[in-house]
Amino acid sequence: MKNKGLLIVLSGPSGAGKGTLCKALLSREKFWLSVSATTRAPRKGEVPGKSYYYLSKEEFKNKILNNDFLEHAEVYGNFYGTPKSNVIERLENGEDVILEIDIQGAL
């Protein structure tokens, strides 16, 4: 019987060091970093599916209605959320997962 993975939540306000801590953990241990969904436009250098899943506001709201997110929040007029299916699948397969989310999402 396979053990389930560990879910680790790194949460804090913008600029608190979540990204720095995440990079340090990922360089030392084998974790899967969850990819969030957002309605904001991609920034230069970001890769769809790796940096974020980029969705329209309509797509995002439909996913909220379908309970497709573990958590979601609106920040500065854009929506952010953690897709449920990928995280649950990884945990069920025994992988340890890190969520890097802001305070609203953690609440």
Rank of each mutant, 00 (worst) to 15 (best):
M1F: 11
K2G: 02
G5Q: 00
G5N: 01
G5P: 04
G5M: 01
L6P: 04
L7D: 02
L7G: 05
I8P: 00
V9E: 02
S11A: 12
S11W: 01
G12P: 00
P13E: 06
P13I: 11
S14T: 13
G15C: 01
A16C: 13
G17I: 06
G19T: 06
T20R: 09
L21P: 04
L21N: 08
C22Y: 02
K23F: 06
K23D: 15
A24N: 10
A24Y: 10
L26P: 07
L26M: 12
S27R: 12
R28L: 07
E29P: 05
K30N: 11
F31H: 01
F31D: 00
F31G: 01
S34L: 05
S34D: 00
V35G: 00
V35M: 04
S36I: 12
T38R: 11
A41V: 13
P42I: 06
R43C: 14
K44L: 15
K44F: 14
G45T: 12
G45D: 14
G45C: 14
E46H: 02
P48H: 05
S51K: 08
Y54T: 01
Y54G: 02
Y54M: 07
Y54A: 00
L55N: 00
L55A: 05
S56G: 12
S56N: 13
S56Y: 14
K57I: 08
K57M: 10
E58A: 14
E58C: 10
E58T: 14
E59Q: 08
E59P: 00
K61I: 13
K61D: 14
N62F: 13
N62G: 12
N62D: 14
K63G: 11
I64F: 06
L65I: 13
L65Q: 15
N66A: 15
N66K: 15
N66W: 11
N66E: 15
N67I: 03
N67R: 13
D68P: 01
D68S: 14
F69G: 03
L70G: 03
H72T: 06
A73N: 05
A73F: 05
A73P: 06
V75I: 15
Y76T: 03
G77V: 06
F79C: 08
Y80V: 04
Y80M: 05
Y80D: 00
G81N: 00
G81A: 04
T82D: 03
P83G: 03
P83Q: 05
K84H: 11
S85R: 13
N86V: 13
N86Q: 15
V87Q: 02
I88C: 07
I88L: 13
I88T: 09
E89A: 09
E89I: 02
R90M: 10
R90V: 07
L91Q: 03
L91F: 03
L91A: 00
L91H: 00
E92M: 10
E92C: 09
E92N: 12
G94C: 09
G94I: 08
G94E: 10
G94Q: 09
E95L: 09
D96A: 10
D96C: 09
D96V: 04
D96H: 11
V97D: 04
V97S: 02
I98L: 10
L99E: 03
L99F: 02
D102M: 11
D102A: 14
I103C: 11
I103T: 13
I103H: 07
I103V: 12
Q104P: 07
G105R: 03
G105D: 01
A106D: 15
A106S: 14
L107Y: 12
